[in-house]
């Protein structure tokens, strides 16, 4: 049998009561935002619940699916696994800040190829792809596959994602 059974339900978690919320000043999409949050709150929940930016999605909470991908100083980062206290003064970009009018070359290519099915994973895919193109403007198919392997899509849009990245990389 597969390993990995966690005694999730039975562990009496030795819970340490955290003291009052901390205040954090975060740079999000070019704006400074102040939030009060416990220090271990993942950036994902700061973005979604405290800043009400809903484009960043929750899929697994364990850095396994990529739905929550944002840029932290330009690096594609799983926001579900980055505590707010670890962000510091690094600049956060979410899908809402990827382009001014939804006209990033990748967003345009995504529309041209009609990539999304349900669409839920797509903002994470786009943020991951954008970071890839920043680093490697002309990736090969294999490089795309490897760079995108952390982003799951249950609907099965991998082929069109790849095509759209190739299109954007040529624009």
């Amino acid at each position: 049998m597969t390993a990995g059974f966690s005694e999730f339900y039975y562990i009496k978690v030795p819970y340490q009561k955290t003291d009052a919320m901390e205040k954090y000043r975060l740079s999000v999409n070019g704006n400074m935002q102040e939030v009060s949050a416990p220090e271990d709150m993942p950036l994902l929940w700061v973005i979604r619940d405290l800043l009400s930016l809903k484009g960043t999605k929750f899929g697994c909470g364990q850095a396994l699916c990529g739905a929550c991908t944002v840029h932290v100083d330009g690096v594609a980062t799983r926001s579900c696994s980055l505590p707010v206290s670890a962000v510091g003064d690094r600049k956060i970009t979410t899908i809402e800040g990827l382009s001014a009018n939804g006209d990033h070359p990748l967003q345009k290519a995504w529309q041209e190829h009609v990539v999304p099915q349900c669409g839920y994973c797509q903002t994470g895919q786009l943020m991951n792809a954008a970071a890839l193109l920043n680093e490697n403007p002309h990736p090969s198919e294999t490089e795309i596959e490897e760079a995108m392997a952390g982003n799951l899509c249950r609907c099965g849009t991998y082929n069109r994602i790849k095509d759209a990245i190739l299109t954007a990389s040529k624009s």
Binding site: E96, P116, T123
Partner: peptide, 10 residues
């Protein structure tokens, strides 16, 4: 699809 733009913009 009708929602393609909204989806890509989050």
């Amino acid at each position: 699809i009708y929602d393609v733009k909204d989806i890509t913009e989050g």
